[in-house]
Design a protein around this nucleic acid. Sequence first.
DNA 1: TTCGGTACCCACACTTTTGTCAGTAGGAGT
DNA 2: ACTCCTACTGACAAAAGTGTGGGTACCGAA
Lengths: 110, 110
Amino acid sequence: MTKRTYICGLDAAITVMGGKWKGLILFSLGEEGPLRFGELRRAVPGISERMLILQLREMEASGLVHREVYHQVPPKVEYSLTEFGSSLNTALAPLGEWGEEHMERIEAIP
Amino acid sequence: MTKRTYICGLDAAITVMGGKWKGLILFSLGEEGPLRFGELRRAVPGISERMLILQLREMEASGLVHREVYHQVPPKVEYSLTEFGSSLNTALAPLGEWGEEHMERIEAIP
DNA sequence: TTCGGTACCCACACTTTTGTCAGTAGGAGT
DNA sequence: ACTCCTACTGACAAAAGTGTGGGTACCGAA
């Protein structure tokens, strides 16, 4: 949130995909296409409703995801990746592969 | 730090490169080769000594960086990427490029 | 004897992030 | 009338992250 300019591209990228969850949300939306709130919640195990909403709001504000409201009862809201979000997702792919490859080693760290 | 298994590779990767700094440290070490503590501090603008040390300790424990002590006075300690750290750095490259490409858009977000 | 330079460590306080547990709207089904 | 369903919202507190200002050790130089 500091108004200064980022020191490099990686810095900027890390800022937009913030904490622990945004990457996973991006990943889920990329893999499974548009998802409604409840589906997304199930797609990202361990996240609380509150966290999911907060993250989605930020990602919407960043232009990473699109929020489509269907005026129904009970309510239905669908989240999907924008072009921007999709491009981030692509850039994130190698990182995901790296994680897969070194999964055992990473799990042994704590 | 939770002992459960990660839900995907991206999850695992995000865990090892933790917060805001580890990616930048990795990047600096990758670009400028082995660096001593003070040099690293200058290479990552805005980080405090305390943070740098904490992050380096964690990264050492994760096997991402190697710490080489030279028994001199005044002290000299050099940090460098391990193979493991280097591979993460490579996987991080596309993310850095993405950030560069969309820098303006990202800066306009807050 | 005092000072400079390097790489740290420690205690404390503050800020940000994350979790928990309630509660709301409003039409449909019973 | 009452309950169910979904997507939220809000208050509160615990946990994690981060900054600040000090201190330590060591040896050589002045």
